[in-house]
Simulated scan of single mutants.
Amino acid sequence: MMKAPRPLPLHQIAAFDAAARNRSFSAAGRELNVQQPAVSRQVALLEDWLGVKLFLRTKPRLTLTPEGEMLATAISDGMQTMRGGVDVLLSRQRQEAMVVNVALGFASLYLLPRLGEFQAAHPEIQVDFLTRDQNMEFDPLRCDIAVVFGESGLPGTESRPIFGEELVPVCAPKLLPDGPVSVETLARARLLHMNNPNHAQDWHRYFRGTGLAVPEPRPMDRMYSYMVLLRAIQNGTGIGLGWRNMVEDMIDAGTLMVACERVVQTRRGYHCCMMPTAERKPGARVFFDWLSGSAGS
């Protein structure tokens, strides 16, 4: 029987593509909203996976090896093919499609696993997603529905809560083979942090009222994307905070475990907001009702 092909390491390929186009790990990091060492590490993992060198670490700019040139060309050709396909699909339904603006982490971990239910019930409603990961200056007027995080929805909109913030520390099961630890032991562990305005103080929120101080994280333990943070947690790099509604499927599946039984609820959460343009899209109200009613499902 023929073996199935190994899945492509897409995060590593994305890091290589950015570095190849910019001829710089630092510039690639800025483009991907991560630090330079993270790009270099992902490229090194890709080189190990392929068994070839892709770059010569020359200065002031990186130099592609022949193998790197071949891969960069293949990625460029593939991206052009994908863009063509996407453009065709978008051109068919763009005028009628309902546009939902949402953060990448929420879309990946909460919305997409549930979207099949909505599409099965409402196949006539076309939904486009605009993700704004790392971009806090998104224009809400460019969408029909916006999913935002905070203590309330967007001012001047009809908003409903989707679910509240429930902070739970999680890690790879191999990191704590003896099970969850005490909050005192947790405070001494390697803690992974988010490095954006909404979540930079999450660990301080978690330990508030315990009398325990949160150590200043090392630069390598600060992540600029929740999806990058989640990958580091899954790899066993350290312990990170998750929102129970977004990580409970992974906890149930055993790919993550609860690192400490202390769970903290805050006044914040995710909110679904109807924008003015939604009045012209009948499907927007249906989606709004569904998403705001799916909390805890």
Rank of each mutant, 00 (worst) to 15 (best):
S24H: 05
N195C: 09
A295C: 08
P219R: 13
G29I: 08
L229V: 10
G238N: 10
T255H: 01
T63V: 14
A121D: 05
K3R: 15
V148Q: 01
A19V: 09
Q12K: 09
A72Y: 00
T277N: 13
S91A: 13
V43D: 02
M246G: 00
K3W: 06
A213Q: 13
S108D: 08
A72S: 13
Q93P: 00
E165L: 09
R114V: 04
K53V: 03
L45G: 02
M250I: 01
L8G: 00
V127G: 00
L56C: 13
P123K: 05
L104D: 11
R114S: 03
M275P: 09
P113R: 12
V52E: 08
Y224R: 14
G236F: 11
W49H: 15
V88S: 07
S182L: 04
E67P: 00
R142K: 15
M223F: 15
L32R: 14
V147K: 03
Q42I: 05
W290L: 03
E216A: 15
E151T: 13
A18R: 10
N22P: 00
D48N: 11
L89E: 14
A259F: 08
E67K: 10
A28S: 07
F25V: 04
G293F: 05
P177L: 10
G150E: 05
A189S: 11
T266R: 14
N195R: 12
A189W: 11
R205L: 15
A14R: 15
A121F: 02
A20W: 07
M246W: 04
E124I: 06
K174R: 15
R160F: 07
L241Y: 07
T277D: 12
P66H: 05
